[in-house]
């Protein structure tokens, strides 16, 4: 069933169109940066972007940082929101459920398909970022400099980049779970995606508000930027660990809610 869902997702042209659009922004930023040579001022702009001018090997991280706040979660919300509601809208959901596999397995298969989409998207963004960074900017063969000013060997840099890719993927799970849950509530994929986006916007807005600081540790977007902490020396694990745990809690709760709703739902379309 998981294989079926994966094939279905990655055979759709729009999946690849989404990934292509996601890559367009970092590439555009890289070209502009190369043409103007104007790095963002300290404290402004996405993380790692100012460091890219001296070391192109950091561009995959800058590319991730560029798509992380908005583009990537939008794509995830659209794909996750489509998961169940899309089938309902197309009138294929009841045929899916005729199979003896059961609704819980369908939900898990849908979530895994979304996770696979996130992973592929993040990997493609990082890979395209690597190629763009190596061709447009001077890449340093000796590795790079950590955020703390220590030297990182090429292996260390690659290892930490892989960790960052994994962390960004996990960070998107919360959005995916919201999209999937809303997708079981409604027959409209658009409504489900917009619901997940509303959660995202609310969370990002509250995070900037000082008055909301008591609830900040529970906001799904709170620890997204913690992947930067992987490039400090020594690595600052605190926020990374909390980010992983928080996403785990959101996925657990929302999947349970989706299960409670979907397995007892009267499917008519």
């Amino acid at each position: 069933m998981i294989g079926v869902e994966l094939r279905k997702l990655f055979r759709r042209p729009r999946t690849w169109a989404t990934i292509a659009v996601l890559n367009a922004l970092p590439v555009l930023v890289a070209v502009l940066l190369q043409l103007t040579d104007l790095a963002p001022r300290p404290g402004e702009g996405p993380p790692f972007l100012s460091a890219v001018l001296t070391n192109g090997a950091l561009f995959p991280l800058a590319a991730l940082a560029i798509v992380l706040p908005l583009f990537l979660p939008i794509a995830v919300a659209v794909v996750a929101g489509d998961a169940v509601a899309g089938e309902a809208q197309a009138g294929t959901l009841r045929y899916l459920l005729v199979r003896p596999a059961g609704r819980t397995r369908l939900l898990v298969a849908k979530l895994l398909a979304v996770v696979a989409f996130v992973l592929v998207t993040v990997l493609v963004v990082a890979a395209v970022g690597y190629v763009v960074g190596a061709t447009l900017f001077e890449a340093q063969p000796t590795g790079g400099t950590s955020v703390s000013g220590t030297s990182l060997s090429q292996e260390e840099l690659a290892g930490r980049s892989l960790l960052a890719i994994g962390y960004v993927t996990v960070s998107m799970l919360g959005v995916a779970a919201f999209g999937l849950f809303f997708s079981t509530l409604t027959d409209s994929p658009l409504a489900a995606a917009l619901g997940a986006l509303a959660v995202l916007v609310t969370s990002s807005l509250l995070f900037t508000l000082d008055a909301a600081s008591p609830i900040a540790p529970y906001l799904p977007t709170r620890y997204w930027l913690a992947f930067v902490d992987l490039f400090r020396d020594p690595v600052l694990w605190r926020d990374v660990v909390r980010g992983l745990a928080l996403q785990g809690v959101y996925v657990g709760v929302l999947l349970a809610a989706a299960w409670a709703n979907f397995t007892t739902k009267d499917v008519t379309s």
Partner: peptide, 16 residues
């Protein structure tokens, strides 16, 4: 197909 609401309260209670 399960009728709507069959077993729902128990499941929602567990989630709650």
């Amino acid at each position: 197909m399960a009728a709507r609401g069959h077993g729902a309260p128990a499941r929602w209670a567990a989630v709650g």
